[in-house]
C-alpha cells in the first residue's frame, strides 16, 4: 500500500524545438528519508514525437539511456537511483538537439542541518 501511495502517477512534460514532442516520466518524485540518502524509484518514460531517430538522455549524468530508430513514440523503464534530482531529455540522434524534457525530483523528509565539527563548546 505504501508503495502504491508513493508511486501515484505524476507526469511532467515539456518540449523544445518540436511543439508536438512530449516526454513524460511516471512517477516523477522520489522521496528518501534523509538529505543525502540515495533515493530509489522504478520509473517509466513515455515519449511522442515526429517520426525520426531519438535518444533518451540523462543530462545530469551525461548518459544516453536508450535510443530508437524511425520511431514516433517509445517507452523505457528503469530503476532510478540517485542522491539528487536528474534532468532528462529526448534528443534527435543526428543533431543531439533536445526536443522534450523531463525531470525526476529527489526530495527528502528530513532536511538536516550540519552541526559544527571538531569544536568544544563548553570546556
Amino acid at each position: 500500500m505504501l508503495t502504491t501511495i508513493v508511486c501515484l502517477p505524476m507526469s511532467f512534460a515539456s518540449n523544445a524545438s518540436e511543439p508536438d514532442a512530449t516526454l513524460v516520466v511516471t512517477p516523477k518524485n522520489c522521496v528518501a528519508l534523509h538529505k543525502g540518502q540515495k533515493c530509489y524509484l522504478e520509473v517509466t518514460f513515455d515519449w511522442h514525437a515526429k517520426l525520426n531517430n531519438y535518444c533518451l538522455v540523462n543530462n545530469t549524468r551525461s548518459q544516453i539511456m536508450k535510443c530508437w530508430s524511425d520511431k514516433q513514440n517509445g517507452q523505457y523503464s528503469f530503476d532510478f537511483q540517485s542522491t539528487q534530482s536528474n534532468d532528462f531529455s529526448l534528443q534527435l540522434q543526428e543533431t543531439n538537439t533536445d526536443v522534450a524534457h523531463a525531470k525526476i525530483v529527489v526530495a527528502w523528509v528530513y532536511k538536516s542541518k550540519k552541526r559544527s565539527k571538531s569544536s568544544w563548546r563548553l570546556f
Partner: peptide
C-alpha cells in the same frame, strides 16, 4: 533513525 554520514542534526 536519523543517522547521517556527517553526524548532522536538524530541527523538525
Amino acid at each position: 533513525r536519523n543517522k547521517q554520514q556527517d553526524n548532522s542534526t536538524e530541527n523538525y
